[in-house]
Design a protein around this nucleic acid. Structure first.
Lengths: 226, 226
DNA sequence: GGGAGTTTTTCCGGAACCGGAACCATTGAC
DNA sequence: GTCAATGGTTCCGGTTCCGGAAAAACTCCC
């Protein structure tokens, strides 16, 4: 069964969560603050991390950022106190996979853990480096170079490129890109995808008006060919 | 387009949802309570059901349970009032595909409906690949290759090919193809189907004038043989 | 609260595609 | 073999869809 790391400073909460998750058959490891949490997350390969936002030494948000930059594939669920609306949003943008607002029912948390683990499992293992044409991409360090020269990419642009790299040859509809790249809780409407495609092409294609890598599939969507 | 059943007791809400969904091109049917909703869901084959949790006569949760036991593949989106945390979880555990908390933006609901429908429509793993002659087809990624070389297909062409692949050996009339692939309800017969058949043959048949895979059934229609 | 950078939306010209008609080829009944 | 009906092919106009730029909205950071 899956191993879950709980990073939380309040002992009662930790004990309650441990009981419930172990009862459900999970293996539980814990850490009382952000620094220790990050350490265990990096060294003990948990399948999922539950992260309190408010903690001594290092906030959950910082842990989230650093963990995601080093282990992008580890799913994270954030715990936030009610009213910290801002934190929720920030958390998701920092790469958390879901968040739960205190006070929460343990059943809700269990359900979300289950859902996040299910989603994580279906994501194909991504490799770290890609290359096509004179472009090199490093997914871990989030760097893109063209003919040896570093390019600047915004977060969204990079996410989109990454999705293309991980699904080469597949025709991807705008709806699918919106759902998988933009995510579950945001709903841009119109030609947002196209606008980002334009910018990717301008940066990556030898001739932006004659794309070789990011191709249009008329009436359907786009497709990347390496 | 898809047919959506809205089960909701508040008339204003129903009217608003109907307007929006019809504007988006969906066919809408409605039911004012759980009992009627379950009945219509079972007898009128909706592609998706939107289900309010709180309703007279039979709660949305009960409808969900019973519907899923009889039609496991029908996607369900639950509408819950804010604060009904428990209901959310129960709903997901009962088999609902998604839930939306009132008050919600219509854009969010539309986006989730679209996403759920898209996921429901994706072909199962074991049926995503087909091969005949030297042609290979991947329904999921919309790829067609002949002798290892990728071919370009327009959206309609691919839809038509897909329909043939899913009905091998069956003789398909033009009317049926028009209705199922094009979505027409059109009585004046056109030669539209023929024109597309021509293009499929040009791309897929070894000798376009001597078809081996997409055969003409004189006086009736066409038939695909793998 | 202001400013820079990013993301989303709007708009329009141009390209691709589709539907339908026209015309030629083939089939099958007699 | 003839002829009527059906199917194959080509072409064009209308429509939809996409690319690109630029403006508007939103964030983030100071």
């Amino acid at each position: 069964m899956a191993r879950i790391l709980i990073v939380e400073d309040e002992p009662n909460m930790v004990a309650g969560l441990r009981d419930n998750f172990e009862f459900e058959g999970y293996e539980v490891i814990t850490a009382p603050d952000g620094v220790a949490g990050l350490d265990r997350a990096l060294n003990e390969a948990p399948d999922l991390v539950i992260l309190d936002v408010m903690m001594p030494r290092m906030s959950g948000l910082d842990v989230c950022t650093q963990l995601k930059s080093k282990r992008p594939s580890v799913p994270i669920i954030m715990l936030t106190a009610r009213g910290q609306e801002v934190d929720k949003v920030v958390g998701l943008e920092l790469g958390a996979d879901d968040y739960v607002t205190k006070p929460f029912s343990i059943r809700e948390l269990l359900a979300r853990v289950k859902a996040v683990l299910r989603r994580a499992k279906t994501v194909p293992k991504e490799q770290e480096r890609y290359a096509f044409g004179d472009v090199e991409v490093n997914l871990r360090s989030c760097q893109v170079a063209r003919a040896g020269k570093q390019l600047e990419f915004s977060a969204k642009e990079f996410e989109l490129l990454k999705y293309f790299l991980c699904h080469p040859g597949e025709t991807l509809s705008r709806d699918r890109l919106l759902e998988d790249v933009w995510g579950y809780d945001r709903f841009p409407t119109t030609r947002t995808v196209d606008a980002h495609i334009v910018r990717l092409r301008q940066k990556l294609e030898p001739k932006a008006d004659e794309p070789r890598f990011i191709l249009t599939v008329h009436g359907t969507g786009y497709k990347f060919v390496g």
